[in-house]
Design a binder for these strands. Structure first.
Lengths: 196, 196
DNA sequence: AAGGTGAGTGAGTTTTACTTACTAAAAATG
DNA sequence: CATTTTTAGTAAGTAAAACTCACTCACCTT
């Protein structure tokens, strides 16, 4: 989870932010809150993190690492490309449901600051997203997926569908039926909604 | 555009924020920046808007109003439900491309504050989103759209696809090919990406 | 034992969102 | 036409938040 080699203060800070984000949004959580919750001084936070957002991205990175590890494992059993895509949808929705703080960070806190896109957290996400594109291209090669469609567009539709299907449930703390959402998304995107 | 009955100070404030958001994110724009750009004092901003985010939502509301008006117009010609959905996709992508500040606000600035969801801007969006669901249900009734799929899930996939297809282009100021993106999204979602 | 290093402190400073008490002009009222 | 009220706007301030910096203390290393 949190790298063991971190000094106790750093660990406490990361843990504190994660816990505070459970019920509150990032902007409303103050450095002073984090320091108090962690039982350290504000100054120490700036020893380990260059600023408040940097702290957020470091915490996020921990989660993404775990997430990508799980996705990798979930993909092992799948043979067909469509099955692999479905496994990714399932892993993503499952992960958003299980780790709602992580979901909130990724879906609502992170985008609105340009420096996210040069963070390590973002690099990890880029790797993941690149991987999805590879699976789609592989599916086109082995004739599971139509070669008349733009692979990047397919990926965007898939990723957008996952996010949109979860975001309101995350924001309003509603239940997520992982299997149902996964089936819905995949049925729609794999087979289309047109009757004929 | 901006309601003519507004006093000049208010108009200048709204215009100032809109102009500042062209190159910067909302959090990095300060009240002082807005006041300076508008040529008014900070105090005046708080005469017309209860707080910084309220100002954002009011500016956003102006745009959404125009957007919904355009969507309504674009829907007039369409007969089939799928054509209507395609018209909505086109309108949305066109609007994001044409009004990038509006797109930024909707896609990246707005979500991360709980009070957005009780704003008038959000009410308008809800109306729009409800309307999309009605079109889908109508399509199911007239047998254009499969009745085996969850209508709400279809809507989420559609909305997610639109957003995801545009968001990176908005953030990184890249070109958007409205027709191409519209065709890609509709081809994928209407017909599915599975070969068989 | 001396010196260096990493963990942590606490008292600042600066910035920023927001408040409040005020003015001057225009509009409504009698 | 005089007076009250409303509207548009200002200027100076406050409180809280993010961030800085000079410092201490404990523990290695040689």
């Amino acid at each position: 989870m949190i790298d063991e080699k971190y000094p106790p203060g750093k660990r406490k800070i990361i843990k504190a932010l994660r816990s505070l984000l459970k019920d509150r949004d990032f902007n409303s959580v103050t450095i002073s809150d984090i320091a108090k919750t962690a039982g350290v001084t504000e100054g120490l936070i700036y020893k380990y993190f260059t600023n408040k957002r940097d702290l957020l991205y470091k915490v996020l990175k921990e989660h993404i690492n775990q997430f990508l590890f799980k996705v990798e494992k979930d993909l092992e059993g799948s043979l067909s490309s469509l099955d692999k895509l479905k496994a990714i949808v399932h892993s993503s929705v499952y992960s958003y449901d299980k780790h709602r703080v992580f979901a909130k960070m990724l879906m609502i806190e992170v985008r609105n600051s340009p420096d996210y896109f040069s963070s390590e957290a973002c690099d990890l996400i880029r790797k993941h997203v690149k991987n999805i594109l590879e699976i789609i291209k592989e599916g086109i090669k082995n004739r599971e997926i139509k070669d008349t469609l733009n692979p990047i567009a397919m990926r965007e539709v898939l990723l957008g569908a996952i996010e949109q299907s979860c975001v309101s449930k995350i924001i309003f703390n509603r239940k997520i039926d992982v299997d149902e959402i996964t089936d819905d998304i995949c049925n729609i995107i794999f087979n289309g909604l047109s009757q004929n």
